[in-house]
Design a protein around this nucleic acid. Structure first.
Length: 402
DNA sequence: GGTGCTGAAGATGATGAACA
DNA sequence: TGTTCATCATCTTCAGCACC
């Protein structure tokens, strides 16, 4: 018998993965509790709508629904809804497990009220998204960490026996079918061709050529129209799709778009990031859609980079693990109250300080005078969200020439 | 509804640059 | 010169979607 696994701890913000996003039909993102149309909410939690139908309803009837990563708050709501359902109908963990994973002979009709009930706990999510999310979250074989050599061997054997019937492979390996598939595709298949380690100049040039050929030269979007499986294939299978994607989005893309220059993250970027996050007014950083923070005028930082930077900023706060987003924001707001000097200026100041200390003049506050002035001169601190980062950086850097 | 494919995000270790 | 921080690379996990 498969025991009903305890609900995993609500994902801590730093463990959250995909970004959340709300389809507001191009309207500005608002807090999820706003704009809930009762008819739409009913529709989302009762009708099994596919992607095309959802898009059509969004287009024609203004249906608002949420996509992307489930936030920590949504996870808690779902968990609470399942607990309530269990208590309301006096069900055991095993009975809930049977509803979520019915045997093939069981009627699916029986479980429909369950899915409708728990989906109604988070009104902007379509029932099908909740269904897939819960089945992943509550899967008895979920999350077993690193793959051992023995598991890889079993996986190879299972694929030899069953091909790409991942459910059968899953039974043999003892991992979720999707995990088996990903592991096989990303690490087992073509392993002999795969190259690891730093990219050579030639590889970088080849990747750049492939991506630009696939997008710009065909009038497509360089950020959204790349098929990484195909790119990996065109690289001769030497680099996997993920290797290619990360290399491109986090490194080459910036350099290519920036005319060969490679921007470096600095304190001004940190300042902008904190104030941009602050301006979103989210309850939890798992609700942030990092793509909306990415800005072509702001050194071309990718959404992925910004998210990692945010994590680094958070980790710089002692005890951040036990703090709410609002508490973290309060601390960062104070830490980043002033617009910092441009990096070149820091270097210049340091040089000056050495000269000054030689002359026995007390050290200056790194945030004093020109820094404070920079902060008050521009409106960055007041409303970064509406101020182009380029404008902010430009105004901060302008004092360099003074 | 179940299954598989694809794109994407999060965690983490290795390495090197910047800094005190 | 030791420490800290940034960047790169890899591995694992997640969600949307199409097809059945």
């Amino acid at each position: 018998m498969v025991g009903f696994p305890p609900f995993p701890n609500p994902p801590h913000p730093i463990h959250s993965r995909r970004q959340s996003g709300i389809n507001y039909n191009n309207a500005a993102p608002l807090a999820p509790e706003q704009h809930i149309n009762p008819e739409h909410a009913e529709l989302l939690c009762t009708r099994w709508l596919n992607a095309a139908k959802l898009a059509e309803l969004a287009q024609n009837e203004g249906l608002v629904y949420k996509k992307g990563k489930f936030s920590a708050i949504e996870e808690r709501c779902l968990h609470g809804a399942i607990e309530n359902y269990k208590n309301e109908f006096g069900l055991s963990d095993q009975e809930i497990q049977d509803i979520i994973f019915p045997s093939r002979s069981e009627s699916r009709e029986k479980s429909l009220p369950f899915w409708q009930k728990i989906t109604s706990a988070i009104p902007l999510r379509p029932i099908v998204a909740v269904y897939h999310h819960i089945r992943r979250t509550y899967h008895p074989l979920k999350q077993q960490g690193k793959w051992s050599e023995e598991e890889d061997t079993r996986l190879r054997q299972a694929v030899t026996n069953f091909g790409q019937q991942w459910e059968k492979v899953s039974d043999l390996v003892g991992r979720m079918s999707s995990d088996c598939r990903d592991r096989y595709r990303n690490h087992i298949q073509n392993r002999e061709l795969r190259v690891a380690g730093p990219w050579t100049k030639e590889e970088e040039e080849q990747l750049t050529k492939i991506v630009t050929d696939m997008t710009i030269k065909q009038g497509k979007d360089i950020d959204n129209d790349v098929f990484w499986g195909k790119v990996s294939h065109l690289m001769g299978g030497r680099r996997g799709r993920q290797q290619c994607r990360i290399k491109w989005t986090d490194a080459l893309s910036k350099t290519v778009k920036n005319e060969g220059l490679k921007p470096r993250w600095n304190q001004q970027d940190a300042f902008i990031l904190v104030h941009k996050v602050d301006s979103l007014g989210v309850r939890d950083d798992t609700e942030i859609d990092w793509k909306t923070l990415s800005d072509p005028d702001w050194n071309l930082w990718s959404a992925h980079t910004l998210q990692r930077r945010w994590l680094t900023l958070k980790r710089s706060i002692k005890g951040y693990e036990n703090m709410s987003h609002a508490e973290i924001m309060d601390i960062l707001r104070v830490k980043k109250a002033h617009f910092p000097p441009a990096p070149i200026q820091v270097a210049k100041k340091r040089k000056e300080r050495k000269v000054m200390s030689a002359a026995a003049i007390p050290d200056a506050d790194p945030n004093s005078t020109d820094t404070t002035r920079a902060g008050s001169e521009n409106t960055a601190g007041a409303d970064v969200s509406r101020t182009s980062p380029a404008t902010i950086v430009a105004s901060g850097s302008s004092s360099d020439s003074e």
